[in-house]
Simulated assay, not measured.
Amino acid sequence: MEGTGYDGPMVRPYFLAGGRSRPARADLEMITLVVSVTDEIRERVSPEHAEIVRICARPCSVAEVSALTNLPLMVVKVLLSDLIDRGYLIHRSPPATEIPSQELLQAVLDGIRRL
């Protein structure tokens, strides 16, 4: 698109999410931590899926993944859900009674600011 400062191709978010508007998993919150269990992708996946596996080589919150991929939060949740179901990622949400650490809260805040 000329004059917008955007040089990449425009792809609608619902296309990236395979036409889905909600993730299959209901347990992915903004502060849920996700981490790759492998860096070897055994099947054909989208570039966005592959990028998320690479990003999650270290534990990241869902909000951080959204910020680092520059994708909407709901799209990221759908893609993360796919990768968890395929066995590429694991996730952990803090129990409702557990108070998140200052580091985690700061990481989520930093991720949100990047959105």
Rank of each mutant, 00 (worst) to 15 (best):
E2S: 14
G3A: 09
T4R: 11
T4D: 06
Y6Q: 14
V11C: 07
V11L: 11
V11K: 03
P13S: 12
P13G: 06
A17Y: 03
S21T: 13
S21E: 11
A24V: 10
I31W: 02
I31N: 01
T32D: 04
V35S: 13
V37R: 06
P47V: 09
P47I: 08
H49R: 09
A50S: 14
A50E: 01
E51H: 14
V53H: 01
R54S: 15
I55Q: 04
R58K: 14
R58V: 08
V62E: 03
V65E: 05
S66V: 05
T69F: 00
N70L: 12
P72D: 14
L73Y: 03
V75I: 13
V78G: 00
L79A: 02
S81D: 06
D82H: 04
I84L: 14
D85I: 09
R86E: 03
Y88W: 11
L89T: 03
H91A: 13
S93G: 13
P94H: 08
P94N: 14
P95K: 13
T97A: 14
T97Q: 11
I99K: 06
I99S: 07
S101F: 06
Q102Y: 06
L105A: 13
A107K: 00
V108G: 01
V108H: 00
V108T: 07
V108M: 05
L109Q: 15
L109N: 11
R113C: 10
R114F: 02
